[in-house]
Amino acid sequence: MIEPNSDALPAASPNSLWTDAFRRLKKDKVGMISLIVIVIYVLVAILCGLDLIFQNYSVADDARSYLAPNAINWFGTDFLGRDVLARAAHGTYTSMLVGLLGPGLSVIIGVVLGALAGYFGGRTDALVVWFYTTVDTIPYILLISAFAFVLGPGLQTLCIVFGLTGWVGLCRLVRAEFLKHKEKEYVQSARALGAGHMRRIFRHILPNVLHIVLIQFSLAFVSVIKAEVILSYLGLGVEAGTPSWGVMISDAKLELSRGVWWGLLTATLFMFFLVLALNLFTSALRDALDPKLKGK
């Protein structure tokens, strides 16, 4: 994987793939701007999560119901008179939480199952392949609706639903990589030096497939944020009262005919810039981590 490279970094550095990728990423303007946008969203989410900004997000006032954008409420108010901008900002926290914890859980499931299957082969492999084929056979939207329906609505169940359903693609890729890597010389030498199975799997092979995990995680983040909207529409999203972009967008089905467009617009814009940044960053990341471009 890591070849000696004359013009750049010390060839023996164990991180040279990552340092190299980071160096390439820094040159990618679109990728860096996307990264900055993502960091801003993360900051907003943290500040909202700690309740340091937009503290008025749940302050209701019947007299101020459905106000159009004005000097006090820049993006208007919703049916309970709550500030739309504050709710969208706090929706960032909800989206970030679901987008990180859901795919986080599926990365753990996918990597562990894929690694065990690819590394040990035989019956373990057959069992894991059977398991992911089964889950993969059920169309995604039916799978998440069925899980969310059975487990009931709520923020935690949302994370669990996305975690339990999103691991198949990653598991398949990790399994294939482990099949390839387990025969390589560096794994053989680790074995000769007395490294046990777990050490070979997690210390030696796993770092070599982490770039795949990273890209898959980023893709899953986007699909979870979008799927949350659909689940909200089905009434399977977060608890009532929790600010979420999905709820704001699906509430618009009753609001638009009354001329109330600001809730839909604000939530859509908040989601748009995050998803676009994530999409652009993923493709920059993929270019940066592409071994074919190494050293360029």
Binding site: K226, V229, I230, Y233, W245, I249, S250, A252, K253, L256, L264, A267, T268, M271, F272, F273, V275, L276, N279
Partner: peptide
């Protein structure tokens, strides 16, 4: 950009 907008928002 088109892919970054929620499908529900398009429909609505």
């Amino acid at each position: 950009a088109a892919m970054s907008i929620s499908s529900l928002a398009y429909i609505l």
